[in-house]
Nucleic acid binder design. Structure first.
Length: 182
DNA sequence: GCGGTGATAGAT
DNA sequence: TCTATCACCGCC
């Protein structure tokens, strides 16, 4: 199989637009020559330093530096001591969290709804932090675009601490898709 | 509903 | 060095 890899410029736009545009495309992690592939069906936009739910609202630190770098790279972090989350950096402190994929190929489990389950199924860890997302081992590839009328939106999950930003409808998902979390 | 788990950031 | 916090998940 040859992949139609999405160029880094795909992520060079507002996080909200990228969050929508990523739905339907593929996340590929090549492990020992074998691709692990999921189709993105749920995302969340984190807009930048002014967005109090976004890690970059704490400023430029060793951890958040990657979000201030070039678009199209991975921001991976560990939460609650055990779950990895992977984001697509869109630049200027913003990024898009990948929350759920539909299993396509090579996954260790078909339990891929939820950011921690997604990274576990694909084998994504802190080692992938800052990697470019247009080349092996970890890249985005063209799937099927999701028509706007099939995209639902609502508040982001788990960011109640962020005041009014917790209510902003910055979570996007494929309507009625069985692999969307919750 | 509750707690495990460890990286992170800020305080001491 | 210490401590609070956390973009979650599995089990109760």
């Amino acid at each position: 199989m040859t992949w139609d890899v999405l160029p880094r410029s795909f992520a060079d736009a507002d996080a909200e637009d990228v969050a929508r545009a990523l739905l339907g495309h593929l996340l590929v992690h090549v492990v020992r020559g074998r691709p692990r592939v999921g189709r993105i069906v749920e995302t969340e936009a984190y807009l930048g330093p002014h967005d109090l739910a976004c890690h970059s609202s704490k400023g430029r630190t060793a951890r958040t530096e990657v979000m201030f770098g070039a678009p199209g790279h991975a921001y991976v972090y560990l939460v609650y001591g055990m779950h990895h989350c992977v984001n697509v950096v869109t630049g200027h402190g913003a990024a898009v969290l990948l929350r759920a994929v539909e299993p396509v190929e090579g996954l260790s489990t078909d339990n891929t709804a939820g950011p921690g389950r997604l990274t576990k199924a694909l084998g994504i860890t802190l080692r992938h932090n800052t990697l470019p997302l247009d080349e092996a081992p970890l890249f985005l590839a063209r799937g099927a675009e999701v028509p706007a009328r099939r995209i639902a939106r609502g508040p982001r999950i788990g960011v109640d601490y962020a005041g009014r930003w917790a209510k902003e409808p910055l979570r996007f998902w494929v309507a009625n898709h069985p692999f969307v979390s919750r």
